[in-house]
Simulated assay, not measured.
Amino acid sequence: MPRHYAIVPAAGSGARFGAEKPKQYLDLLGRPLIFHTLAALTAHPAIERVWVVLSPDDAEWSRHDWLALGPKLETVRCGGATRAASVTNGLRAAAMAAADDDWILVHDAARPCLSAAMLDALVAGLADDPVGGILAVPVADTLKRADAAQRVAATEPRDGLWQAQTPQMFRYGRLLEALENCPGVTDEAGAIEALGLAPKLVRGDSTNLKVTYPADLALAAMILRARQ
C-alpha cells in the first residue's frame, strides 16, 4: 500500500502581509501560525511524516517549541527562492523515505485551518485516482477583470471555475518529475497539468483559507476558536 507524506514549504517572507517577521511565525491563539498548520497534518493517522522546508538562514524556527507536534515532524533547510523550488528541494530531501508510488501532500504553511475532515476527503477521494488532485472550492463571487486604471474592463463568467487550495496530493515520482520539468508554476497542480494530465478537484471548504493579509489572521483565529 502506498504511504502518505506531507511537505510544507515555509521559506517565504510573506511580503504581502507587511509584518516584521515571516507570516508563518505570527501569533495565532498563542502559537506561531504554522504550528496550527503542522498540527493538522501530524495529527492525521494516514500521514506518516511531515517535512517542513525552511530557508537556510531561518533564525525564527529555533525560537519556538515544536515538541507537542510529535515525532512525525522533520525540518530541512533547503528552501528556494520560489514555492516550486522549495517543494522540489523538499521532495529531493524526502527521497530517503518516499517511493515513487507514495502520495505527497503539499500544504501551504499559511493555511492553519485545515481540518481532519478535509484531509479525510482528500485521501479517500484520491485513493484510487491515477493522477491525484487538490482541495478546491467553486468560485461563488462575481469576477471582474480590471484595466490599467483599476476600472472594470469585463465581467468574467464563473461557471466551472474553482479556487485552488491545499493540500495538493500527487504521487512522489510524478510530482518530482513535473516540478523539475516545469519550475515556474505557482502550484503543484500546474506542474502536473503541464505533463498533459488533469488533476481531480476534491471539494474543500471556505474555512481552509490562506492567511495573506492581516484581516485573514483575525478570521483564522475565529475559525479555530469556533472549533475548540
Rank of each mutant, 00 (worst) to 15 (best):
M1R: 10
M1Q: 10
H4T: 10
V8C: 13
A10W: 05
A11M: 09
G12R: 09
G12K: 08
G14N: 09
R16F: 11
R16S: 15
G18T: 13
E20G: 15
Q24I: 01
Y25W: 03
L26N: 06
D27M: 10
D27T: 10
L28N: 14
L29M: 14
L29F: 02
I34R: 13
I34W: 04
H36K: 12
A40D: 06
A40Q: 09
T42G: 04
A43T: 12
R49N: 00
W51N: 01
W51R: 07
W51F: 03
W51E: 00
V52Y: 04
V53Y: 06
L54P: 00
D58R: 11
D58L: 08
D58C: 10
D58M: 11
S62A: 12
S62L: 01
H64P: 02
A68P: 00
A68L: 10
L69T: 01
G70M: 02
P71M: 14
L73G: 00
L73R: 03
R77P: 05
C78M: 08
R83S: 06
S86G: 08
V87G: 04
V87S: 05
G90E: 06
G90R: 11
A94E: 02
A99F: 01
D100H: 03
I104N: 02
I104H: 01
L105A: 08
L105N: 04
V106P: 07
V106G: 01
A110K: 06
P112S: 05
L114T: 12
L114S: 05
L114P: 07
A116W: 00
M118A: 13
V123D: 09
V123L: 15
A124R: 14
G125N: 07
A127R: 09
D128Y: 00
P130D: 06
V131R: 01
G132V: 02
I134E: 08
L135H: 03
P138G: 01
D141A: 12
D141C: 04
A146F: 07
D147W: 05
A149S: 12
Q150D: 13
Q150N: 11
R151E: 14
T155M: 14
E156W: 12
E156T: 11
E156Y: 08
A164D: 09
A164V: 15
A164C: 14
A164I: 15
T166S: 15
P167R: 15
M169A: 15
M169K: 07
F170L: 12
F170V: 06
G173E: 06
R174G: 09
L175S: 02
L175P: 00
L176N: 03
A178S: 04
L179Y: 00
C182Q: 05
V185I: 03
V185C: 02
A194T: 03
A194S: 14
L197A: 13
L197F: 02
P199Q: 11
V202D: 10
V202C: 13
R203K: 08
L209Q: 06
V211I: 13
Y213L: 15
Y213N: 14
A215T: 02
A215R: 15
D216P: 07
L219P: 07
L219Y: 12
L219W: 09
M222C: 10
I223F: 09
L224G: 07
Q228W: 02
Q228C: 07
Q228A: 15
